[in-house]
Design a binder for these strands. Structure first.
Length: 297
DNA sequence: TTAGGGTTACAG
DNA sequence: CTGTAACCCTAA
């Protein structure tokens, strides 16, 4: 897993995901033009966004079109393999109310080594923070994971204490969770295992006001975007759909984090992010209604 | 402009 | 050498 060319910073990734959550995958130019992301993605082209999204999909274990092709080739040469799908075991609801989030992306735990490349200072420091956060968790070695306070304490002890650190840390943790580099379980963060599983969705952190708005919207949303996404899901096995949904929820949350981080137009951006989450809630409901024990396809 | 196949750069 | 991530090329 390389640290090759112009690596994407977690911020850029988050912005990309947020953009996809808002406008949908494929609307690269739109995402790029969105005043909320244009700043963070200013150095990336629409093609870059597309490629990055493809890479993310691949490493996420989600079947990106590309990975499928590669896998197919490998199988072809070795002439082996089936894709056994023991179908899942749990017909459980995806809608639990605790704060458990388990991202759908495995992703290796390789931290980004600091490169002394020619990148803006800002990006350098944030990339380093990611590195440090992971290091902190590793060093702390808490079996069930480490909470934000412990992580912050460790970092403050080992490194310099930036002024905006606490807030920055929270944002970074969210981003890392969304990226699959960390898993959050009951307020604690830990390094993800090699494989992924599906978790409940989180309903944390939103004001009752917001939640009401969401619940209210869920009942009467009818965007063409929704139909399009739901249509995609028809061809997925339940497992795939669940992973997809879990990932999407994480993305929506990143969108919210981004909205907070970018103080500018925060309200409007947050509203859009919430809308994205609303869509996801609808997806979840739809899935629960239609996913008998067997897959659709 | 976008999707997808191909290529390059780099880490393990 | 192989796998991964960023980058390039081109058809639609």
């Amino acid at each position: 897993m390389g640290a090759p060319k112009q690596r994407w910073t977690p911020e850029e990734e988050a912005a990309l995901k947020a953009g996809v959550a808002k406008h949908g995958a494929g609307k690269w130019r739109t995402i790029l033009r969105d005043p909320e992301f244009t700043a963070l993605l200013r150095l990336r082209s629409n093609v870059d966004l597309k490629d990055k999204w493809r890479n993310l999909s691949v490493t996420a274990g989600g079947y990106g079109s590309r990975e499928r092709a590669r896998v197919a080739l490998k199988r072809g040469k070795r002439g082996a393999m089936v894709i056994p799908q023991p179908m899942d075991v749990d017909g459980k609801s995806l809608d639990s109310d605790d704060n458990t989030i388990i991202d759908s992306k495995p992703s290796a735990v390789v931290v980004e080594s600091m490169k002394l490349e020619s990148s803006p200072e800002k990006e350098k420091s944030v990339a380093r923070l990611d590195d440090i956060i992971l290091e902190a968790i590793k060093k702390l070695k808490e079996s069930s994971g480490s909470n934000r306070t412990a992580i912050a304490a460790y970092i403050e002890k080992q490194y310099w204490p930036p002024d905006d650190f606490q807030r920055l840390l929270s944002t970074k943790l969210k981003a890392l969770v969304a990226t699959g580099k960390l898993i959050k379980v009951n307020q604690k963060y830990r390094i993800p295992p090699s494989s992924s599983s599906l978790g409940g969705k989180s309903t944390k952190g939103y004001s009752t006001e917001t939640m009401n708005a969401i619940n209210n919207n869920v009942k009467q949303l009818s965007k063409p975007e929704v139909d399009a996404e739901l249509d995609k899901m028809k061809g997925m096995s339940k497992e795939e759909a669940a992973a997809f949904a879990a990932k999407a929820v994480a993305e929506a949350e990143v969108a919210i984090a981004e909205a907070e981080e970018a103080a500018r137009d925060a309200e409007a951006a947050e509203a859009e992010a919430e809308a994205a989450k609303t869509f996801l809630d609808a997806v979840m409901l739809t899935m629960q209604n239609r996913n008998p024990a067997s897959a659709v396809y």
